[in-house]
Nucleic acid binder design. Structure first.
Lengths: 229, 229
DNA sequence: GAGTGGTCTAGACCACGCC
DNA sequence: GCGTGGTCTAGACCACTCG
């Protein structure tokens, strides 16, 4: 009887699925299960810990472990670079720069990122294409206070995202997903009708608490983000 | 020097943030780091394993550990029961049943869930309210093949979600997020203008491979899903 | 106060994959 | 082949929290 932590995980999950251990009820403690599986407590611990991270179990010291009542589970969406996303669909990636300028940050951006009024930013609007058709519109704002070299960066051949990855090693990110109607300018760029519903992802990136960049990614109509669990 | 796995994690992250260990480059092996931190290899292993799960590091046997080039990171969105979501915003939860019927599954539903043509389903349309105002519209379909008791369930006082949680202990879920324009009927229910862009979440739930339920959740205009990492 | 999970250690064996 | 990560063990101490 090998009893790896994966097997123990699967077994626990099986008992829950089969209804042997019902939502809300307590399940045996680590020590007891370790004895039952004939394994070390650390092994059972890893199995149960991962199930708790996945939202299946709920653990509290002294109180023990129970099956979660409402599966407080979370959906995980991979947010790969657009290029990879497009190529993963078997389409050819294309890129087109639309607008590029250095200017004072608009008020809404200052509010969103906590920038001082009048802070200078690099603004870039560009389009990511799949087999030549518009796939995603990128509206990018980069703080020149933190990344002065962004003023001179050349975004005519490739997008700001790839450039940014090379500049900032690691960062804190805040993501929002919403639906928005296409305004006339955006509709023209994406090749859709004005007012069409678009899936929009906004991402604010900070580095050591200071705002680095903000991006608004608008997808072509009908775009879906999917995941399983 | 305690050197817990959290401290080691933070230290490794710090070295990456500070640029000491650059994206794409290899970092020392577990044994070497364990010696440097004065801790056991298992402790360093946990720190590095979690960083790899979070998409910061990339690990391969024999090849060693490197800092990921493009942070292949994923956004995690909590999908709590609507009631909790509304109450977490400090609003009073309200519920209203709109439609309820037992009928043969429409073609699109059969295709989506892999149901046989003409399979009977329970359909429920209802509204979740925050402080009396429409917050989310729920369009729910339940397979009577798997849950015959759904035909008689009473959804006049509380929604199908809570009822379902008690019926299905654990399940596989497929989630999709998209933007859609409000059709006239939906607009009337949500109290918005027809054609407005809505954030829509669709969830198909299976149990041992068989389709149990499908739900389409349409949020009031302006709704955002947010997360950090 | 006492029980349960959270974590660490020291040692070991193994499997995967570069070379 | 052989080095690196992946995992398991047996034992220990600790911290949180429930009763």
């Amino acid at each position: 009887m090998p009893a790896t932590y994966r097997e123990i995980k699967a077994d626990i999950l099986g008992r829950i699925t089969r209804g042997e251990w019902r939502p809300g009820s307590a399940i045996p403690g680590e020590a007891e299960l370790a004895a039952a599986y004939g394994s070390a407590r650390a092994t059972v611990n890893r199995a149960m810990r991962e199930l708790a991270e996945e939202g299946i179990l709920e653990r509290r010291r002294k109180a023990g472990t129970r099956v979660r009542l409402s599966p407080l589970r979370e959906a995980r969406f991979a947010i790969p670079p657009v290029r990879e996303e497009i190529e993963a669909r078997g389409a050819a990636y294309g890129y087109a720069l639309i607008e590029s300028a250095v200017l004072p940050a608009p008020d809404w951006l200052c509010a969103r990122l906590g920038l001082p009024a009048g802070a200078r930013v690099r603004h870039v609007a560009c389009l990511h294409l799949a087999d030549g058709a518009p796939y995603q519109h990128e509206d990018r704002w980069i703080s020149l206070a933190l990344l002065p070299q962004a003023a001179a960066a050349d975004f005519s051949a490739s997008g700001p995202t790839e450039w940014l990855i090379a500049q900032i090693p690691f960062s804190e990110v805040e993501i929002a997903i919403a639906a928005a109607a296409a305004d006339p300018a955006l509709a023209a760029r994406l090749g859709c009708a004005p007012g069409e519903a678009l899936l929009v992802i906004e991402r604010a990136t900070r580095w050591n608490g200071a705002a680095v960049t903000f991006v608004r990614l608008a997808h072509r109509p009908g775009h879906r983000m999917t995941t399983r669990y």
